[in-house]
Nucleic acid binder design. Sequence first.
DNA 1: ATGAAAGCGCTAACAT
DNA 2: ATGTTAGCGCTTTCAT
Lengths: 349, 349
Amino acid sequence: LKSNTVQKESRKKRRSSGAITLAAVAEIAGVAPITASRAINNPSLVSLEVLRKVNEAVEQTGYVQNKIAGSLASAKSGLIAAVIPNFSSSIFLDTIDTLNQTLFEAGYQLLLGQTNYSKEREKSLLDQIIGQRPDGIFFTGVISNEVARQQLIASNIPVVETWDLSTDPIDMLVGFSHEKIGSSVATYLLKKGYRCLAIIGADDERSLRRFKSFREEVKAQNSNENLKPVTAINVRASRTVSKGREALMELLAINPQTDAVFCSSDLLALGVVTQAQHLGIRVPQELAVIGFGDIAFAKDTAPALSTVKINSSEIGRLAAHLLIERAHQRFLPNKIMDLGFEIVERETT
Amino acid sequence: LKSNTVQKESRKKRRSSGAITLAAVAEIAGVAPITASRAINNPSLVSLEVLRKVNEAVEQTGYVQNKIAGSLASAKSGLIAAVIPNFSSSIFLDTIDTLNQTLFEAGYQLLLGQTNYSKEREKSLLDQIIGQRPDGIFFTGVISNEVARQQLIASNIPVVETWDLSTDPIDMLVGFSHEKIGSSVATYLLKKGYRCLAIIGADDERSLRRFKSFREEVKAQNSNENLKPVTAINVRASRTVSKGREALMELLAINPQTDAVFCSSDLLALGVVTQAQHLGIRVPQELAVIGFGDIAFAKDTAPALSTVKINSSEIGRLAAHLLIERAHQRFLPNKIMDLGFEIVERETT
DNA sequence: ATGAAAGCGCTAACAT
DNA sequence: ATGTTAGCGCTTTCAT
C-alpha cells in the first residue's frame, strides 16, 4: 500500500509543520477533506458510515485539528481575551474564574493579559490582543483612552467592560456604581453613630471615585451635624495586609480621634483590624473598619469583617454570556447592566 | 485616484473579514507585501525610506497585523498555554503572574486553561490547547495520564511541568520535592518538642505526598521515642479559612491531645489559628500550627503564621525562560530543576 | 534591499 | 450527503 506522503518532483518549495493534517485523515478515511471537516465539527451533516470511518482515521493517526488554519479560514478564532490589572487582587479572580468556566463550556479558550494598572501597558497589550483576532474582549474596568476606544470600535470585536458604570461604553457593560458605594458607606457609618471618618486606599481610579463620593456625602450631611473632615491615607498600589497595618499608624498619627475607616480592599481592612488589636484599640467600639470586596474569608476573621459585597462571579458569568451571544450575532437589547452591591454588616462596624 | 478595492468580475466567490490587510498597507506605501511585512516585523531589513512610508501607511489605515494568518504561515503562534487547577488557590497565581510578565516582555501571549482538579477536564482542555498550536505549554503539576503524555510528546510542543519533582518529565521540569517537605516539617515539629502531631489538608495528589512522608518520618523517629500516631483530617477540595476552622473542631473531637498541626495551605492554617483563639487555646503554647505556601499576609496575621515557603515567582520566571529558549530552538542542558523550599518559623510554632 | 511565487491547513461558497 | 474550488492574510523560499 503506497500511502506514504508523496514527495513531488522534489524541486519545488515545501514547508509543512510535520503534523497530521485534515487532508491526511480524509485520505485515510477515503473522503474529501471537507467531508472529514464536517464529520469532526458538525457530525450531524454526514452519514454514520462516513462518521465512523473518519473517527477511525482520527484515532489511528492521533490527529488534532489545527485551529489556527481553521480560524483563518472561518474568521473565528475561538478565543476570548480578558484584560486584568494583575493576579494579586484576588477580587477580580472570581470574575475571571467564572468567565473562564462559562466560556470553556461554550468551546472558547481564554487569552489573558495583565496591565499592572499601567495605561501604556494596556495599549501595547491591546495591540497584541487585537492582532490575535479574538471573538470577544473582556475588560476589567472601562477603557478611557480615546485612541484605544476608537481602535476597539474599528476592530469590530465584541467588547464587555466591567466593574464600573459609564454612560457611553464601547459596546457592552456589566458593572456597578462606585459613586453609590461611596455615598452608601458614608451614610451607613454616620447612621451607626461614627463621627470622625477616614479612608485608606489605593490610588486606582475606581477607589478614588468611591472615596470622592464618600467625602461628598459626609460633607453633604455636615450641614445639620458636627462632623470632622475625612482624613485620607493613600497606599498607592499596595493593597496588602501589611500596608493596612502601616496605614493605620499613619492615620492615627494624623488624626487620633478617627472612629471609623473605609478601606479600598478587604486585605487593607484586615491589616487595620490586626494593627488595632496590636495597639489595644477595640474594634468596633473604638474603631470601626469596613472593607471592600468581601473576599472569601472576610466572614472568618476575628472579628468578622464588615465589607461591601460585589457579585463578582455574576459579572464573569454575564460577561461570558454577552460575549457568546454577540459572537453568534444575536441581538442584545440591554447593553448596560447594573449589578448593584451590598453592605455586609459583620463585627467590625 | 482610483485606489478603491477593485471589485473583480463580481461573479466569483469572495469573503474577507473586512479588516485592513497587509496587502492594502503595502499598496499605499508603494511596496510589495513582503517588504511591508519586513518593515513591520524586522525593520532592520529595509531601508529607512521604505520604513517611513510603511509606518505612515500603517498609521493612516490603523492597520493591526492579523497574527492568525502569520501563525499559519510561520508555524509560530506567539501563544504559550498555561494549565492551572483554578483561580482560587492564590498560591499558583504568583507563578502565573510572573510567567505572564516574563512571557509578555518576550512578545508572547498567555492562553489560560483551568482543570478544577479534574482529570477528564484536563484531557479535553489539552485537546483544545494543542489545537491552538501554542509555542509552549506550562503545567501546574505533572501529567500522569499516559495518553495525555504521549499526545504531548507527539505534538512536539515544548512543555514545562512544575510544582513537583518527577523522574521522567515529559520535557522540562521546575519544581521541588513534596516528600522532602513532609519529612522536613515532621522533623522540625518533633525537634521543637511537639509529640502529638496531626495533619489537615486537601486530598489533591501533592498534599497527600507531603502527608505521606510526614507520617513516615514520624513513624521512623518513633523507634526511640514515644510518639502518638498522626491524626489526619481530610477537607477534600476546600482550602478555605472556614474549612480550617471546622477541621480543627473535627480534629479535637478525634484527638484532643493534639499539640501540632501541619496544614496543606496557609488559609487552612489561618482558620485553625482563628478557631483555636475562639476556643481559648493558646497558639503556639498549647497548639502549634504550620501552613504551606507562605501567602503574602502570612507574616501579618496575629500571631504570625509559620509556614513552608516555595519560591513560586521563580517557578514562573524559570518556566518562562525555559519555554522561550526552547521556542528559539536553543539547547537546554538541565531539564530538571529543583528549586527547594524553606521552613519559615514565625509565631505559630 | 526588494520582490514574485507558492503555499501554511483549513472552511465558505457553490455545485451535484 | 458529499465534493470542487478558491481563498483566508500572511511568511517562507528563492531570485534578483
